[in-house]
């Protein structure tokens, strides 16, 4: 063939290189999507086996109050009521979010509105450091400080929802704070100027203008914190006592989904009912993290700052 014609019709070296590069990046991003799909497929297939293979009814599983997968109850059904763990998880999540939110918002306001100088010099690195502390270290501090403290004040063993709440409070505080700071910073400057020009004090401006404008962002931050608290495993497992009983008070040993999972999965045989029931707990965790994700999305869509 004519060499000029050939060079016009064939792909150039540069466009081949471009193709190759494109394929590499497509492969990488495809891999991440494939991992997500695989996680959902495998955890769902294992978790649903409790209901389809072992014929446990979903209602018994979600609302049953006794967790003892190895044994059968009076009517011959396995005792796999996950309500103690589910309620334990929700209790620690909501309580820690409830305590952490005012502190997080207060710190964020301080960093953005009251003293931006000290905020960026002291509090910014402090929150970054708190995020970086590994969860087992939080668990260890919980075990050696919080548990004895709760024991000496409230009696009992010290293990329980209250200790878990304290540990989670410190863990989610920096997450919620730094996200709230970002939202407060994104409130336009002229909002503040308009309010101050009307003669409002700084606190009136913060309370009546800035916090109102930042509400969707703050809610997102709190939901993120709750998602982190819900999925946290080891720090909670170390201080909550791990008794799979319905939580009767804040200071009696109880359990969360994650704590029973970490304790149990190594002691059960793959494919048995005990094991499948644990995978069902993992499935609940997965669905809850999906749910938190959706909530964040809905808040973001409806509350976008106009």
């Amino acid at each position: 063939m004519d060499p000029i014609r050939e060079s016009l019709l064939k792909k150039s070296k540069a466009s081949k290189l471009e193709m190759r590069g494109k394929i590499i990046t497509y492969f990488c991003i495809g891999l991440i999507v494939a991992i997500v799909l695989a996680i959902f497929y495998f955890v769902a297939s294992k978790g649903l086996a409790t209901f389809f293979t072992d014929k446990v009814s979903i209602k018994d599983f979600l609302l049953g109050k006794s967790w003892n997968p190895g044994t059968l109850d009076k009517s011959g059904k396995p005792e796999v009521g996950a309500l103690p763990m589910i309620s334990g998880s929700f209790f620690v999540t909501f309580l820690s979010a409830l305590i952490a939110t005012p502190f997080a918002i207060g710190t964020a306001i301080f960093m953005v509105e009251i003293s931006p100088n000290k905020g960026s010099r002291i509090l910014q690195p402090v929150t970054e450091l708190l995020v970086g502390i590994p969860s087992v270290v939080y668990g260890f501090i919980g075990l050696s400080v919080v548990v004895p403290f709760v024991r000496s004040i409230f009696g009992g063993t010290g293990f329980g929802i209250l200790s878990g709440t304290f540990v989670l409070f410190v863990m989610i505080l920096p997450t919620v704070t730094s996200m709230t700071v970002d939202t407060l910073k994104s409130v336009p400057r002229y909002y503040r100027e308009a309010s101050l020009a009307l003669g409002a004090t700084r606190w009136q401006t913060i309370y009546k203008v800035i916090l109102r404008a930042a509400t969707p962002g703050i809610m997102t931050a709190v939901v993120f914190g709750m998602a982190r608290a819900f999925g946290e495993a080891l720090a909670v497992q170390m201080v909550i006592g791990n008794a799979s009983l319905m939580p009767s008070s804040l200071i009696t040993p109880s359990s969360t989904l994650t704590s029973i999972l970490t304790m149990g999965i190594g002691n059960t045989v793959m494919g048995s009912l005990e094991n499948n029931a644990l995978w069902s707990l993992a499935l609940i965790l997965l669905l809850m993290s999906l749910f938190f994700n959706m909530v964040v999305r809905v808040i973001g869509k409806r509350g976008a700052l106009k």
Binding site: I39, F42, G231, A233, I265, L285
Partner: peptide
Amino acid sequence: TSVEILSSLPSVVVGLFGFLI
């Protein structure tokens, strides 16, 4: 969305998936 979901999964679930696979 799937990248976001992967980043929000509890690490214990990721660990269990690794165990299974």
